[in-house]
Nucleic acid binder design. Sequence first.
RNA 1: GGCGCCAUAGCCAAGUGGUAAGGCGAAGGUCUGCAAAACCUUUAUUCACCAGUUCGAAUCUGGUUGGCGCCUCCA
Length: 465
Amino acid sequence: MKIFNTQTRRKEEFVPVEPGKVGMYACGPTVYNFFHIGNGRVFVLFDTLRRYFEHRGYDVTFVQNFTDIDDKMIRRAAEEGITVKELADRFIAAYYEDAGSLGIRPATVHPRATEHMPEMIAIIEKLMDKGLAYEAHGDVYFDTQAYKSHYGKLSGQNLEDLESGARVDVDEMKRHPMDFALWKAQKPGEPAWESPWGMGRPGWHIECSAMSMKYLGETIDIHGGGEDLVFPHHENELAQSEGATGKPFVRYWMHNGFLNINNEKMSKSLGNFQTVHDIVQQVDPEAVRFFLLSAQYRSPLNFSREQIDQAKAALERLYTARDNYLFLREGAEDRPLTEAEQALVGAASASIAQFDAAMDDDFNTADAIAAMFELVKQANIAAKPGCAKEALAAVLHAFGEMADVLGIVKPQEENLDEKYAAQLAARAQARKDKNWAESDRIRDALKALGVTVEDTAQGQKVRKI
RNA sequence: GGCGCCAUAGCCAAGUGGUAAGGCGAAGGUCUGCAAAACCUUUAUUCACCAGUUCGAAUCUGGUUGGCGCCUCCA
């Protein structure tokens, strides 16, 4: 299995810290609002990685945090006239709902920053002890000059270059423009926690270091998020974590490409923010997930209604295929395989191998999806009414494995045959009598109820539109 | 100024040295009472452009053009 590592900028063979186990950490949302479709891409990506590792037999511990204290949280809570905690609780609940609609499973742990103050303070103290941090008027800063030889290794920049392009306001408290806050002294009216440096709150980056080390150990396998997090967020996490422990922090850094809206960057000023909460009201959430997986994760992706419609149409082919195989299974025969059926069983396992090979190559979901379509192609040709049970079972198994990893084509709960039994019986009789007018009338009536009925060699087949 | 990315058909998108996957869309056909689904056929002599390396390049090198990201909160 190969993973593109942002730090080395090349694909590397994946070797976990502990054989058979994977520890991964994704930077989660700041819970001051519904998360947007760009966040959704990150969450779907990491959910899919996790599913794939599990499919390959790894024991996965997946941590995704909630940032529940920062400037945006404080501002928004003030606007709403509620506490920061109330704001956080509201949007954490919304996260689970919206993520669920995209088929994103809850992580192993979803830690909250505000519940990990002691862990953060411990790291800052360690950095102070090592001379990599300094206190100034109740603030604590990471001393990038003291860590000069290591700083910048993730983003591939050195301190001088960063400094020359820095648009950072020079803070009087800082010794160097690139130094960043580990702890911020309390300002009037802000939530604050006790610390050796007085009341205050953590800086932007320290929470991810503290929570990832708490749940995954000092060296984790995979850490990632959107590509904009490379600098400064992950660079700073790396500096403070390795500065504190003296051990490698992350083995593989993964960053996904940006998602644009109608070819424009999503931003407040353009007013084109699209939350998943809103999108899933309008379009099939599974089509959104499929769309997010339709390109390699490091490529930029353009969100538009047209793209979602295309994704929906593609997904429709997979749904129809799966439904057809389930329908055929009802009339399948328990008998030895014909030569063609043996070939189909072979094609089914070949498709899983193709799928795994694609995913092994830096999680190439576009190629993995192609493997599903190739199975469908073979199965549509070879699987016929009265075919052998074993052949259909192999197809359905392969299809299910792949769909599970991608988190698409979930099973239908409703039994449509039972639900519309009366109409179907009447229509069967009409067809027997060659009463086409009546037969078509019933078909149209069912269509109005949201289901189509198809006539096959095996009888009538109903499916949702 | 520094670091980095991208350009493949009408649309989306794989492919990083051996002669262009897959999906959507479109056109024609088979099957069907009619449909639907499915299947068959067609839809890039060519991968932004120009040089170069090579027996061979979408793939490597240099350049040009166009687009984008980070260096400030941002997934």
